[in-house]
Design a protein around this nucleic acid. Sequence first.
DNA 1: GGCGTAACGGTTGAA
DNA 2: TATTCAACCGTTACG
Length: 292
Amino acid sequence: MEQSTFGEVNQLGGVFVNGRPLPNAIRLRIVELAQVGVRPCDISRQLRVSHGCVSKILARYNETGSILPGAIGGSKPRVTTPNVVKHIKVYKERDPGIFAWEIRDKLLADGVCDKYNVPSVSSISRILRNKIGNNGSPNQNQAPYENKNAQVVAAAAVAASSQLYNPQFQMYPYSCPAPQTIPSMPPSQMTSQPQMLNSLNNLNNKPQMSMPMSNCVTPCMVRAWATSPHSVNDILGFRHPQQGMPQTAPPMHHDTPSGGQMGQIGQIGQYNNMNYYGMNMKQGMSPMYLQS
DNA sequence: GGCGTAACGGTTGAA
DNA sequence: TATTCAACCGTTACG
């Protein structure tokens, strides 16, 4: 369908794809303009992005330091890991009359779970009913891990989840590289917002700047469980407005924070000299996030 | 007029 | 393989 192929046009004349994030380049530009004192309403008009979206992106940036959208799709990490089920089973065996809410409290008290990943009372009840049931054996009642390979996978999942969870921050962080020193970027490629770049670098595998990447977890990353393969160069497909447009065509593909798990965004149509979110589009360029 | 936000329709990906 | 579900998205409209 033509409409979905080329996206839609909002009241300001900007092109967008319903349900999909704005390109990171636009997100970054919104933040940059705000930081040089441009009012949100002017940013909205200039980039042809709704003021609600500008407001949301700026609010998120102010709160978290990240310009990136959240992880779309997928499910939360399972909280009813085999380890948790095992503990529930133990509690039930020790005290057959124990209530689900008591089990929940004990899981917290014993440090098996914390307040962020403790199963709900209904989940515990379901575990008691389905996995422990009458005989107390989680393996005799359609156990979720029916073979050795599955058990290995489950064990790996538990290990991964325990590593994913950062007790220091009490959150599940977005994946990000361990603190490391990375090659330097020519100053000409650096924007005027190094802290923003650092924020971006934290979410990308390809190192771009020479600075140690530590404390890479931002509060907005609480609910991320996927990796991002995208480079900062992919994201920064344009220069700071004061520096004009890049010599080379900006990357016309879409970046997402949840990386390879996200949908593959390809080229859809050709926009010829179209003003795309206030950015001059050279002939042959494609909108960076329209999907096929 | 500018701003914050709820509602809405849509996309996405794990289960 | 198809479906479900719950997360996210940007736009719109309202206060």
